[in-house]
Structure formats: structure tokens, C-alpha cells
Simulated scan of single mutants.
Amino acid sequence: MRTVLVVLFDDVQSLDVSGPVEVFNGAELHRPGTYRIRTVSRDGRPVRTSSGLTLVPDHSFADAPPAHTLLIPGGAGTRRPDPRLVAWLRENGPRAARLVSVCTGALLLAEAGLLEGRRVTSHWSVCDKLAREHPSVEVDPDPIFIRDGDLATSAGVTSGIDLALALVEEDAGRETALSIARHLVVFLRRPGNQAQFSAQLAAQTAQREPLREVQQWITEHPGEDLSVESLAARARLSPRHFARAFQGETGMTPGRYVDRVRLEHARRLLEESADGIEEISRSCGYGTPEAMRRAFVRTLGAAPAEYRRRFRPAPAP
């Protein structure tokens, strides 16, 4: 049995706690003896979450059991770290078989010196801060979660559920993870290297109307000719001027934006439709299944057929 020890502190984000806990508890219900879930705070007293909920821990730092998986959630409290919490993590983090952070919980691990030389992610809003204040940490702001050996870090809020499902699948098998996903009405799990943002959210909205119209056109017509020349003509600009203006106003090259839109559209079709791979590749502008396969493997680490098998929501039992 693996002890999952969840660290609580004032102004913790309640969903960072409850999301993963529901997943681990689901695994225990499905396969008794898989996990023992415990919570701990500095002195064992109740803590107040950032949303006003009160959580009552099982243990204080002094009597906490050894953890197989030590989980550190995020929340406003991570921006004003309690020195005693940081010291406890510095001492106890290395003793855990697996160290996990959700959202801004990575800030606490960094303060404790537990992320040195590791590749991590966190909520997009603190990734710059994390990289600036801890230059020896390799911070990747894009994925929803990252596994680096015995360390697992995730982005904001719901990505903690995705990471917990991935850990359950590793510990207890795909069928257990699938059962939990069905119960929670979520995907079996999103791939960790899926971007935190869609293309439309990741890119800024262009200031000039012709460029905004082009952004919308790309989103609505991923299967069309989306070359720089074609898009520039639609914006009534020269290709060179268009490419420079698009990147300047959106923060993303036209090609990068098109790639992300096409990938997201293909993913949605694989998850939500029964269309064949060849049909999807054509409708998303890839032209051939092989071109779409290369894009999926490069970005998501899985071919389209494998992506569909693993990440399409399962039918209700």
C-alpha cells in the first residue's frame, strides 16, 4: 500500500487538494489496498483554503507518516511560504519515493531546493518567476504536467487530476484509471505534453482587424490553404509584412499558430468523432495520414490511432 501524503497550508487551492485526492481515493475503492491517503499541516490544526473552505488534516509535521507519494498543492499560500513548511519539505521531500506538485506547489519545492537541475512545469502565471528566481531549474511553461524521474509537476488546477490519473495508471493499471475517469466524467487522461493553452488562448488577439479576421479564418478553416502567401492575401498585405505583423501582434508566427490550430482540431475529432484517420488528416489540412502522424508524434508523443485509443472518453458502463 502506498501512502499518499497531501500537504495542507493556509490559502491552499482547494481543487489542487480535492482533485488528486478524489482520483487516488477512486483507485483505493476500485482496488482496495492500493493507497492510503493522509493529509498533514504544520501543527495539525485546520487550514482555510483560498476559497474559504476549511480542511482538517490527519497529522501534524511532528507525527506525519512516511510518504510514498508526497503531494504539494498550490494556492495563494505558496507565494508567502511558511519557513517551517519549507524546512519540513527540505527534510522530508527526499525521503518520499515520489514527489508531486500541483499548480504553484512547485514554488514551495523550489524554495526547499528540491527542483535543482530538474525539468518542471507550473501554472503559466508563475513560470517566469520560477525560472528567474531559480535559474538551475529547467522550467517549461507549456505542458500540463511533466514527469522527471521521481518528480512530477503539473500546471493549474485540473491538470492535477490528469497527473493523478497518470500515476494511478502507472501504479494500478489502465483499467483502474479508466474506471476512475468514467466516474469523474473526464478523459482517461490528457497527455502530459499537451499545451496548457489552446492556440487562441496562447496567442494574443491581433490589434488590427484584418489580422484578427485571419486568426478567426484559420480557426474555422484548418483544412484550407493556410500558407503565409494565402493568409497575407486575405489580410491584403505582402507576405513579408504579414508575417512580421502577425508575429508582432500575436506573439506567434503564422506557421506556429496554424500548426497548433490544426493539431487541436485533429485532437478534438479523434476524441469526439468516429471519422477515420485519413478523413481527419484531410479535413485538418495535413493532406496525408503520415503528415498528421508526424505532427502528433512530435508534439504529443503518440500517433493518432494511439491517441484516440488512450484519450477518447470511454462510453458509460
Rank of each mutant, 00 (worst) to 15 (best):
P65L: 12
A96L: 05
R147D: 06
T49S: 08
D82Q: 05
T69Q: 15
R42K: 06
L55F: 15
S122K: 03
S136T: 13
P57G: 01
L71I: 15
I72S: 03
P143H: 03
G117K: 02
L130A: 07
S125T: 06
E138L: 09
S101A: 15
L130Y: 03
A87Y: 01
L71V: 15
L109N: 10
K129A: 11
T54K: 03
H59V: 13
S51W: 01
E111A: 07
P143W: 02
D82E: 13
A96N: 11
V139L: 05
P73I: 04
L107D: 10
A64I: 12
G75M: 08
L85T: 07
T69D: 15
V102W: 13
A62I: 07
L99A: 05
P66V: 00
P57D: 14
E91Y: 04
D82Y: 00
I37K: 01
P65M: 05
L109V: 13
S101Q: 14
R79N: 04
E91S: 11
F61V: 13
P141V: 08
L55G: 02
E116N: 10
G93M: 09
W88V: 03
S60G: 14
A67Q: 03
L71H: 08
G93D: 07
G74Q: 11
R119N: 08
E133M: 06
G44E: 10
L109Q: 05
Y35G: 11
K129Q: 12
T54R: 07
W88D: 01
P83G: 07
P66R: 07
P143Q: 06
